[in-house]
């Protein structure tokens, strides 16, 4: 069942993967976070506030509190239509709010940044949008005609306990990749958890079919080389929709290729097996999210843009291991917390 040398087909695949890796890394190099995140030149400056923010960011940092105060003062002299923050009186009068103008003046700019910072420069970070939307439509078609019917059938006929065991088994197979990336990131506690899960679930858990370690407090987590690169400062690069795989980026796409090489099963088992494993992972995921995906499609006015936003925010969350969801990151418009941290 296994062979010491990769099969010829695997070698061809590896060569292709290496080519993709090289291209993606080049993409990351030419589109680093710092130069792509705030495209000051590309944004029409409409108000003194935006100008000061943009200048400060272009100089390598966020506006200081003093600059924000200055901008607030300048903003109060701006015509309402060009205000960078809420013309609070207009909206409050329209909706019968009772706060006075004076109260709002004191908090106006601060409040505007409370959710996500002054609305200044924004960038989709998606120079390949036409290609990506095309690929997104293809993936969606594949999902509608192939993946979803299989997932519905799987969810209907296979008992939940069996489906959980399938997921546990697939997760256990991914241990080497997660462990390697835990170590690359210097996350020793998480590496310990990964290793403990593997030994417990592979033995007591019957080759990973049962998540005994999870029940004992060793919670599952996943790491990949895209996250590792991000931890070491690599920017997201451009947004990328991969065929069949879905939302990704130059960095994360390159990370996938590295993960492919990091996975011992790539070398031990034929490519058909690995494709089957990827297919089963997709079916498992899809079967667990049948209603949610339908909800998202119905609820969106631009499904592609929503998925892109969700992907980026989730990656930020994963990169920070859920500890700093407000941390700065690639391609997501700066939130107030991101600006706060840049100021420090």
């Amino acid at each position: 069942m296994s062979s010491a040398k990769p099969a010829p087909k695997n070698r061809i695949f590896d060569l292709l993967a290496a080519a993709v890796l090289t291209g993606a890394l080049v993409g990351c190099t030419y589109l680093p976070l710092e130069t792509r995140e705030v495209p000051v030149q590309a944004v029409a400056v409409e108000s003194p506030t935006e100008l000061s923010d943009a200048q400060a960011l272009q100089a390598g940092g966020a506006p200081s509190p003093a600059e924000i105060q200055t901008a607030a003062a300048a903003q109060s002299d701006s015509p309402p239509a060009q205000s960078a923050v809420r013309p609070a009186d207009e909206l409050d009068n329209a909706f019968g709010l009772t706060r006075t103008s004076q109260e709002l003046q004191g908090h106006q700019l601060a409040q505007a940044s409370d959710i996500g910072g002054p609305d200044g420069a924004e960038d989709d970070g998606d120079p390949l949008e036409i290609f990506n939307r095309f690929m997104f439509a293809i993936n969606d078609t594949v999902d509608i005609f192939i993946l979803k019917p299989i997932a519905v059938t799987y969810e209907f006929w296979v008992p939940e306990g069996v489906r959980n065991s399938v997921r546990n088994f697939l997760r256990n197979l991914r241990t080497p990749v997660t462990l390697a990336n835990d170590l690359f990131q210097g996350e020793m506690h998480r590496a310990e958890a990964t290793l403990a899960r593997f030994f417990i679930n592979s033995t007591v858990g019957l080759a990973g079919l049962f998540d005994i370690a999870g029940d004992s407090g060793w919670d599952y987590h996943s790491e990949d080389f895209g996250q590792t690169m991000a931890v070491y400062g690599a920017g997201e690069g451009f947004y990328l929709v991969l065929p069949l795989i879905g939302p990704s980026s130059a960095r994360d796409g390159a990370g996938r290729v590295v993960d492919h090489f990091l996975d011992p099963l790539t070398y031990l088992l034929p490519m058909e097996y690995n494709l089957g494993r990827a297919g089963m992972t997709a079916v498992d995921f899809r079967s667990r999210n049948l209603d949610l995906i339908e909800d998202m499609k119905r609820d969106s006015i631009d499904y592609y843009a929503r998925i892109r936003s969700l992907y980026r925010q989730t990656r930020l969350h994963e990169i920070s291991n859920g500890e700093a969801g407000d941390a700065p990151g690639p391609a997501v418009s700066k939130s107030s917390d991101e600006i706060s941290q840049l100021q420090q």
Binding site: P247, A282, F285, R286, R288, L310, Y311
Partner: peptide, 10 residues
Amino acid sequence: MRRLSLLLLF
């Protein structure tokens, strides 16, 4: 696609 599971929690 796998990563969508977290996204959909939203």
